[in-house]
């Protein structure tokens, strides 16, 4: 898909649940699936679910979201969260997804995430899809691991 074909899309961040799927069906339009580093939840979970549900989507690395906002391609942000109790607790990158939406005047829908085994996936930028991308074994402390994020003020 080319950029010009994307209009009023819904971005999905985090692991889609059944409730999230229903939301996407009701809203209609193309869904943008962000890669969702470090665990690649977009690729390993959301893509498969959307294919099964026959919902039109386009995949992108997380870095592309900014340009999509800049070009006015995004109409809604759906953030699937770890917990929504007295505030929102999101997976790594949730704060960034929500803040970029806020900065661009795009409303955010928070929902509780679906089941995805984050624990068995990459935890930080040192590896991608289980493959080490840095050399040497002495750089453990040099990688800032992804951690849950409190989305207080969004």
């Amino acid at each position: 898909m080319k950029l010009e074909e994307i209009k009023n899309a819904t971005v999905v961040w985090g692991a889609l649940s059944e409730e999230g799927i229903t939301f996407l069906k009701n809203r209609g339009g193309v869904v943008v699936v962000a890669e969702g580093r470090p665990g690649l939840v977009g690729l390993y979970h959301n893509v498969e679910l959307l294919k099964k549900e026959n919902i039109e989507f386009v995949y992108c690395v997380d870095n592309v979201l900014g340009l999509l906002f800049y070009k006015g391609k995004i109409g809604k942000m759906l953030v699937m969260c770890k917990k929504i109790e007295l505030g929102v607790l999101g997976r790594p990158g949730s704060l960034q997804a929500a803040l970029l939406s806020k900065i661009h005047g795009v409303s955010v829908e928070f929902m509780v995430e679906g089941e995805f085994d984050f624990e068995s996936r990459d935890k930080g930028a040192a590896s991608l899809g289980g493959k080490m991308m840095v050399l040497g074994n002495d750089c453990g402390g040099c990688v800032v691991l992804g951690k849950d994020e409190v989305l207080g003020e969004i």
Partner: peptide, 18 residues
């Protein structure tokens, strides 16, 4: 790292949190 300069590596979506 090769030049022993202090560097930390992050995923692209960790910027806001940091």
């Amino acid at each position: 790292r090769k030049n022993n300069i202090d560097a930390r590596l992050i995923c692209d979506n960790q910027v806001a949190a940091l």
